[in-house]
Design a protein around this nucleic acid. Sequence first.
DNA 1: TGACTGATTTGGAACGTTCCAATTATATGG
DNA 2: CCATATAATTGGAACGTTCCAAATCAGTCA
Lengths: 345, 345
Amino acid sequence: MNKTRTSIVDIARAAGVSKSTVSLVLQGSSLVNEKTRDKVNALIGDLGYVYNRGAANLRQSKSKIIGIVVNDLTNSFFAELAVGMDMMVQSAGYVQFLAHSGESVDRQREVISSMRENGIAGLILSPARGTEASDIKPLADSGIPVVLVVRNVSGAKVSTLLSDNYTGARAAIRHLISLGHHRIAFMGGFADTAVFGERLRGYRDALAEANIPLNEKFVIHSAPSRAGGVAAVERMMGFAERPTSALCLNDAVAFGVCDGLRSNNIEPGKGFGIIGFDDVIEAKTAVPALTTVSVDPQGMGQRAAQLVLKQINAGQTDPESIVTSVRLVVRQSCGAPVNQLEELA
Amino acid sequence: MNKTRTSIVDIARAAGVSKSTVSLVLQGSSLVNEKTRDKVNALIGDLGYVYNRGAANLRQSKSKIIGIVVNDLTNSFFAELAVGMDMMVQSAGYVQFLAHSGESVDRQREVISSMRENGIAGLILSPARGTEASDIKPLADSGIPVVLVVRNVSGAKVSTLLSDNYTGARAAIRHLISLGHHRIAFMGGFADTAVFGERLRGYRDALAEANIPLNEKFVIHSAPSRAGGVAAVERMMGFAERPTSALCLNDAVAFGVCDGLRSNNIEPGKGFGIIGFDDVIEAKTAVPALTTVSVDPQGMGQRAAQLVLKQINAGQTDPESIVTSVRLVVRQSCGAPVNQLEELA
DNA sequence: TGACTGATTTGGAACGTTCCAATTATATGG
DNA sequence: CCATATAATTGGAACGTTCCAAATCAGTCA
């Protein structure tokens, strides 16, 4: 209704003090007399004053906004990641611009530039597939801390927070092997992301160290989603010699694989061993409960936020690369030892 | 690295024109000579100028930021809703402040006030449980359009975009009845949200019109999440006389119910009919594919964004209440006609 | 030439804050 | 009562933009 927002000078006038004093009160300065402070605070409530952070930023040119760009919010791994960041960011007194690139680099470029215009203090980016170092460079050059999370971008000289995909995948395969499997597939994902590459490398190396020859057909590409998991199973069903278990690129694919198996009357975890990657919330309650490599997305989000906050406070520091460790969480979906499985098959 | 951001006057100086001219170029005004425009644009690229939207807002006091607060991003219904909004908002040249209240009113209050300070042009809110009209009033009073989505807040005089929960639930129950069920549960949710109330009312009325007496025990409260669905099934297993089917508060609960049934060796869709609500992406690919009331979360998000954008452009308009229609999507999870079911049971 | 036109361009105030240097009020000690 | 220290307050410039009224420029016409 008010034609014009009430400003600091309005309360100054009402309180009979100068705008400087009001500003001091707003900043919680100890310089100002208690009585004055109370009077001003009362007026602030009464007049419905709202602080104009934009104006403040203009003067002191350091905002309290952190940009977060996530490639796919509908994947619960990323949603949890975002929630973890949100918690950290909020509790540090910052707010977040959260945007969704939908795996499109163009879109990502747009939102990043828009964030720049709005004066973010730092950026956390889970890059869309195909992101190049040049997409990030201008930001980093202008002194805004950037933290890459989940996926790396080759050539970008910024901080990264990645999970130990290689070790996680290797541990998962070793586990399947220890259960007696030797026809093990790798399902989901496309070769163009670093995450895929690292997990696949773990898969290969673990097979190699057990002297199990790699069957290239068993690396089944598909969208890194639930639907992709279903598709991968369909593909697999056409094979003459089928795998008895699979490591999936992520939990979404793993759930899709469960769905796909059921459509083919194979009971996941009994007729076929499945291991996922990420450990999203549902992994625990799903039936069968999903054996998966736990990445702790919320924790990772928090860590990423901490990292960017640290860099913001420290002025400018050298890029830091953190690899978070992962651990295999064994639940039901990887199934009973394979000798039992084969009897059933 | 630069001590100070390059500003409009820097390019003005470099181009030998006044800052006003540069401003005009930035706004794409037709007043400025083509040659000048080109020169300025070239300099903008060269000097790495980035527009300072904060400063601009200060002067013209209408920002291009839309606040979006969602109560639970990890629920894919809300994630999709957010993605739908994101698409609309971005393509209208706005950016979004997306925050997650985690179903906490305190947190919600914080983020809303933070958004206000940052000068949002409008707010889309999917309110946390227990939100009161007073939480929204100050915003609305100060002339910022607010659109409530998914859940209503009684007494709030702002626009709303709700789905037709009552009709959807009634249609679902009618369908179950037509399949021969008469012991039908309602699973998930707590009585303190309007959504719950409306869907439950649809459930009750549909039973009543078929002259099926309501068994209060069959309304099983639980968290509106996957884990809640599992819990609801556990509760149900203790009943002497068990339901043969259930309408779930939402798809997340429905998936949890499937999980819970499997743990009890009941095959969802065969030994027990399940209908969800929302139609999230996974509903289609899940096994069994989920029969659910389709709410089209992305579309709803888009509609909500359109509504708030309309109100922003129109200055101030009267609150508008939109009820989006829903439709029952019959897939596998509601199962075969009940006479077959009972043979199996 | 001079007036008039339309096309461009331009100072300067304004937006709401912070920050600095300077001022005023209050208390303390001699 | 003065000098001095300390506490509290203040005016005004600055931040980077927009917007307005006014100024300048280049033709054009008589």
